[in-house]
Design a protein around this nucleic acid. Sequence first.
DNA 1: CGTACTTCTTCCTGTTACGGGACAAAGACG
DNA 2: CGTCTTTGTCCCGTAACAGGAAGAAGTACG
Lengths: 396, 396
Amino acid sequence: MRRMTARPANAHQARLLRALRDSGPNSRAQLGDETELSRSKLAVEVDRLLETGLVVADGLAASRGGRRSHNIRLAPGLRFLGVDIGATSVDVAVTNAELEILGHLTHPMDVREGPVAVFEQVLNMVQKLRDSGVADGFDGAGIGVPGPVRFPEGVPVAPPIMPGWDGFPVREALSQELGCPVMVDNDVNLMAMGEQQAGVARSVRDFFCVKIGTGIGCGVVVGGVVHRGMTGSAGDIGHIQVDPEGRQCACGNRGCLEAHFSGAALARDAEAAAREDRSVELAGRLEAAGRLSAADVAAAAAAGDGVALDLIQEGGARTGQVIAGLVSFFNPGLVVIGGGVTGLGHHLLASIRTQVYRRSLPLATGNLPIVPAELGPAAGVTGAVRLISDHLFSPA
Amino acid sequence: MRRMTARPANAHQARLLRALRDSGPNSRAQLGDETELSRSKLAVEVDRLLETGLVVADGLAASRGGRRSHNIRLAPGLRFLGVDIGATSVDVAVTNAELEILGHLTHPMDVREGPVAVFEQVLNMVQKLRDSGVADGFDGAGIGVPGPVRFPEGVPVAPPIMPGWDGFPVREALSQELGCPVMVDNDVNLMAMGEQQAGVARSVRDFFCVKIGTGIGCGVVVGGVVHRGMTGSAGDIGHIQVDPEGRQCACGNRGCLEAHFSGAALARDAEAAAREDRSVELAGRLEAAGRLSAADVAAAAAAGDGVALDLIQEGGARTGQVIAGLVSFFNPGLVVIGGGVTGLGHHLLASIRTQVYRRSLPLATGNLPIVPAELGPAAGVTGAVRLISDHLFSPA
DNA sequence: CGTACTTCTTCCTGTTACGGGACAAAGACG
DNA sequence: CGTCTTTGTCCCGTAACAGGAAGAAGTACG
């Protein structure tokens, strides 16, 4: 299949492409309404896009009362690849240019095995997707890694949980493998972009997105744009202090949020409770599985286990405490809670909400929804394809 | 004097005006270099600006090796007014279009006396400045108030420390009085803009500016633009919790930063120490003045008083603790510390730095200057005139 | 002092972008 | 079948714009 070589030649074409991406196939007339381009200009630019093959005609549009219009859509053969490397798993997905997921694979994998092993796994999964027929080649790829990234170069910098990745040229390597443009970002930023593209944050311009997985991170969106900070480490809230006399954290400090609540901390606490026989429910699960995870705590809580509920409640309170501070500082229009522990569901959310609404000023919380993420495991890969398509659908 | 009626007609003119504002009188050639406009375009736009009277010719520029150029400068008669209403004082300043302060008055005043009284005071001071001859009328005014503002309307909303101001049409009222455009913002945001315009933050695009005065607030600048948040309360960090079992705060919660450290809290603590005879130095000052302020603590610390130093050290640690969290979240390129208590000087700064560098990740703090504000009492008014000039020097 | 070279400004022209009117095409509606 | 609406195309006048040419006003140097 011929791959996308052309790029929008100007800002107008870029706007048209994004409009087509976000609202699907569209008639010229509707496009004109949306982008507020004059008819002549629209005709010229659409014709050029048709020439380059980025968009194609696609049957007739529904009539709006007069002559029927021909639909325009992004070339149906375009394919984007989204890769989400988590601490303990890898997600790979293929989408069309409208960012609809055509194929999605997940594989458990420890990121600490290093970039070479992980890349091998990713390329394996990509091959599987190729074999399944959803894609031949790719026009662009986005990839997220669980640590800070020097964004312009697409290189992880000083990632705490993934030694061996520091300085590894992720962008360059993947681009070489796939033969297409690649963009790299923090996995949490991608989650935020995913929710902004296709999830709960679709119409919000200032929000943040807390991801509670193995660790805790936070994607910050200001004016519709991801805020990455000076060194790409914005949103790194896992090591904010929640208790001066709190637990020792791997980072060397005391009382970090992550030490008190995260997928890893929760599992540890649950196992401790099980061993100390404080919870029959958890003890049984530990017996059965040999170890516990956040999912076990969720299940125990759903079964009414008091200890599990307490763990969730306290974790939510800790998280809420931090979020309350950030809400005061940032005054967002929405807070999204996502990540592996979203299985903890309503209990966690309620606990967070209580804390935030109690601790932040009414002016900031008055109209502040705190909601669970909508996309689940697809958020990361959706954000990844959004990232690369934003890049490609922008004027050169 | 004829007042500015014209506004830049397009983005190019706006850019030219801002360039002239920020780098002073300039030759056409240099302007061309700075704004990267073609000679023809530059000539046309400059001519139009000359016609409208916004800029004037101003003698010959220094030669750069060939024919000398005529200088262009912003009309010397343009006058902006900056008003900074603090919790306990009012600042009023007049600047020219290059935002150089031509006259500056300060007057102690309790904002709780309400908008009518404060406005009367402000207008009084304005009249004094007028009488001194630095200005006749004004082409625009910026005004800062110590509380959240609904920015587009220029109206304070639910300000905790200034009851009676809620909903008062500050913008409308001042505009009526002065007969010129007015913009209103939070005083802390203005301080940040001031430091960005003429202080330490001149070349930084992402930073925040912590103002420790009667209360504590924080101006957040993202990509060179002040971030005001959804309801205009961004940066309201005074009520972030620093100690779950901490002091009771006026807001109803426990352990707010402001309850533990701020101009007001510091004075209270110092008086307590004086009464309990823990510090001879402070007791003496209390005796002399009848009450203590942050300045007294600063003086006592300078004299080597241990209690005063401890107070500063602990306050700095509390503040640093909060800032550390915000640094992790936001990853700024600079942190500015300002406000009334900057008199506390190096001790405070050192204490804050220690805490931030210890508690935030190296990636975020590695190249993070934490510096005192440069402009002192002029920051607010400078930010205010910057605000209005940004507004006026933008395409209609 | 004169000549060569720079820099700066103005004038001019060809190109491109753009908006909107006129008109044709295609369907909706009665 | 006729009329109305919507859509797409063509076309033209206007404005924006870049860059060349030439003149004005300096400097550098013999």
